[in-house]
Amino acid sequence: MNKNLSAYDDVPVITAKDGSEIRELMHPLQHGNKAQSLAEATVYSGQRTLLHCHRVTEELYHVTAGQGTMILGDQRFPIAVGDTILIPPGTPHALHNTWPVPLRILCCCSPAYAPDDTEILDNEPR
């Protein structure tokens, strides 16, 4: 197995704490990288993720398909293909897919994503 390569079709899809579908494309626990992780999140048409935050992790979201609304702290703004969003540690955030096709986001986390760093702030999709 080549730990420097993560083949897309070999990556299992899981459901994240926020309700999105996640493919963990590159993570230290599987691939040996050290300082960050990269995942693809999918939010289906009309779906919203749970409002949540990460105490330690800084995230970058990059939209690769679809359109939606980003909830980031007190802000709400439209997002579309090509947009990149900075999510500082401790900032509440969620996604709402407002488009008839799946919203796909590349999520880069530094330090690498850890489930125990995710705090759900609202148990109902917003």
Score class of each variant (00 low, 15 high):
30 Q>F: 15
31 H>F: 09
31 H>C: 07
31 H>E: 06
32 G>P: 07
33 N>E: 09
33 N>T: 14
37 S>E: 13
37 S>G: 13
37 S>R: 03
38 L>A: 06
40 E>N: 07
40 E>F: 06
40 E>T: 02
40 E>Y: 03
41 A>N: 05
42 T>C: 10
42 T>P: 05
43 V>W: 02
43 V>L: 13
44 Y>H: 15
44 Y>I: 05
44 Y>E: 11
46 G>S: 11
47 Q>C: 11
47 Q>M: 11
48 R>H: 07
48 R>M: 00
49 T>A: 04
50 L>H: 04
51 L>M: 12
52 H>S: 13
53 C>Q: 05
54 H>Y: 01
55 R>P: 08
57 T>G: 03
57 T>E: 12
57 T>V: 14
58 E>L: 12
59 E>M: 13
60 L>P: 00
60 L>I: 13
61 Y>H: 12
61 Y>N: 03
61 Y>D: 02
63 V>Y: 08
64 T>F: 03
65 A>V: 06
66 G>R: 01
67 Q>N: 10
67 Q>F: 07
67 Q>P: 01
68 G>R: 04
69 T>R: 13
69 T>K: 12
69 T>G: 01
70 M>N: 11
70 M>S: 05
71 I>V: 10
71 I>E: 09
73 G>L: 00
74 D>S: 04
75 Q>L: 05
76 R>L: 02
76 R>Y: 05
76 R>C: 00
76 R>I: 07
77 F>N: 03
77 F>M: 00
78 P>I: 01
80 A>M: 08
81 V>D: 08
82 G>I: 14
83 D>T: 04
83 D>W: 05
85 I>V: 13
85 I>D: 01
88 P>M: 11
89 P>W: 02
89 P>I: 07
90 G>N: 08
91 T>A: 02
93 H>K: 00
93 H>G: 04
95 L>A: 09
97 N>E: 09
98 T>F: 06
98 T>W: 05
101 V>K: 14
101 V>Y: 15
102 P>M: 12
102 P>D: 06
102 P>S: 12
103 L>D: 08
104 R>E: 03
107 C>P: 03
108 C>K: 09
108 C>A: 15
109 C>D: 06
109 C>Y: 09
109 C>A: 15
109 C>Q: 12
110 S>W: 06
110 S>R: 12
110 S>G: 06
111 P>W: 11
112 A>L: 11
114 A>I: 04
116 D>Y: 08
116 D>Q: 15
117 D>W: 03
118 T>Y: 01
119 E>F: 04
121 L>Q: 10
121 L>A: 08
121 L>E: 13
122 D>P: 01
122 D>S: 12
123 N>L: 10
124 E>V: 07
125 P>A: 01
